[in-house]
Amino acid sequence: MDDLTEMLKGTLEGCVLEIIAGEETYGYAITRQLNDLGFTDVVEGTVYTILLRLERNKLVQVTKRPSGVGPPRKFYALNDAGCEELAKFWTKWQYVSSRIDRLREGGR
């Protein structure tokens, strides 16, 4: 679907946390996963800025590993604070989506 940028703002970070929680991974792979999920407008740059923030806020453990081509790749894994943040994200998401559903049902 096109034109989701505005709506996805604020939730993409949670999505990235969830993907990293699954396994240690790197920017390009995260972007591909989001694209495959149907968020086709998400580019690597967007994911890069999110990873940068996660790193700055000390929610991830970063390891540099050599890659087959080009410079070494940064791999990201969740630390304890990151796990907490992810749990918070899902709680908030649950809250928001349940309220919006309620609004929609009530409006009919």
Binding site: V43, E44, Y48, S67
Partner: peptide
Amino acid sequence: VDFFEEGVAAGKGVLELIG
């Protein structure tokens, strides 16, 4: 620059990489 070098290595154009 690290990030851009990775994009170059992957053979991408810059706007393809960052939008």
